[in-house]
Amino acid sequence: MLQVSLLSKSFPRVPQVLHEVSFTLRDGEFLSVIGPSGAGKTTLFRILNGMERCDSGQVLYGSVPFQSAVGQQKRAVQRTIGTIYQDFCLVENSTAMQNVLNACLPELSLAAVLLGRFGPARMRKAAAILREVGLEDKLEEPVKRLSGGQKQRVAIARALMRDPSVLLADEPVASLDPVTGRQILDLLKEVQRSRGVSVLMNSHNLELSLAYSDHIIGLHRGRVVFDGPPDAVTDAVLARIYGQAGVEP
């Protein structure tokens, strides 16, 4: 589903943020990228969702080279990617329903966007997805009145609105309390199983990453130092990922 090959990225003040990073996210897999602050996780995530360009290497979604895709080909790839952020990235004064429908804006004409005309089929679909994520009684609730966990459920529903093949989850529970965080990850696992979606999660939380993932990528100073299943993450592996100073809390 997603192949990352020899990906490298530098910035003027931070040379070699990523160095020849390679891994594969398979169909229907839950993969977590772990590592200390400064390991390159956020930069990797921004390249995968198209917000940054790499200096060298390749990102393949299916057989399409994402970094060099343009026009309709790039838009077709982007339609297969859903993104979930730590800070939700919702319109606070709009309803849960409106926020989910906003995922359809790129498909609409300018007139439809200005008039807010999404059509009955899209509205039915948005309502069904909000029910799927447990918010059947919050469709017309302004997002600003929702709890953090409910906001993240709206964000997940928005990501699902375009029927993605891949969900990119950037620290999806970092802003939530531990109980709510586990509920959100339970929901992502259910989405993974029921829809066959591949999930790639960028996370600082080692415990949750090991508990919920099928596949772990460990980054240290921009390099992949571990690529394997959670049960192969030993103390020696953690030392390679996090260094001798130990694991981040």
Rank of each mutant, 00 (worst) to 15 (best):
A239R: 15
R75E: 14
S165R: 15
A127H: 05
A103D: 10
L44P: 14
D87A: 14
Q183C: 07
D214C: 08
G50M: 06
F45E: 07
L167K: 04
S165I: 00
S10I: 03
Q150A: 06
L7G: 05
L105E: 04
M201W: 02
V133M: 00
Y85M: 11
E20G: 09
L146G: 04
S32G: 08
I156E: 05
T180R: 01
R182K: 01
L185K: 02
S8T: 12
S63T: 05
L115E: 12
H19A: 14
S10Y: 02
A127Q: 14
A211F: 03
M1P: 03
K9H: 11
R124F: 04
K9D: 06
I184L: 05
A39Q: 09
Y61M: 07
A76R: 11
L18Q: 11
P172R: 01
D235C: 01
E29K: 13
P12A: 08
L60V: 02
R221E: 15
V100C: 12
N202C: 07
Y242K: 10
K151T: 12
Y212Q: 04
H215W: 04
K138G: 02
L90T: 10
A239N: 14
G82V: 10
E248K: 07
V21W: 05
T24L: 13
E20C: 07
R75Y: 03
S209F: 03
F88P: 12
Q152S: 11
R13V: 06
I156N: 12
T43L: 13
A128H: 09
E29G: 11
A155H: 05
V197K: 06
P172G: 03
V199M: 07
E140M: 12
S209N: 05
G28S: 09
R223Y: 07
S209D: 08
C54Q: 15
V225W: 13
V143A: 06
M1I: 06
R75A: 15
S109M: 01
V237D: 04
T83R: 10
A128M: 09
P230D: 12
L105R: 05
D55I: 05
I184S: 10
L90Y: 12
L101P: 13
F45V: 13
S10K: 04
P15K: 09
L160Q: 12
G181M: 10
N93G: 03
V179W: 06
E171N: 01
I184T: 07
Q183P: 02
E190L: 06
L114W: 03
A174E: 07
G119M: 11
E171Q: 04
I129N: 04
Y242R: 04
S8K: 00
R162N: 14
I156R: 12
F30H: 08
D214I: 02
G116L: 08
E140F: 06
Y242A: 00
D186R: 07
P36R: 06
E107M: 11
S56R: 15
I47H: 09
T95P: 07
G196A: 13
Y212F: 15
S213F: 03
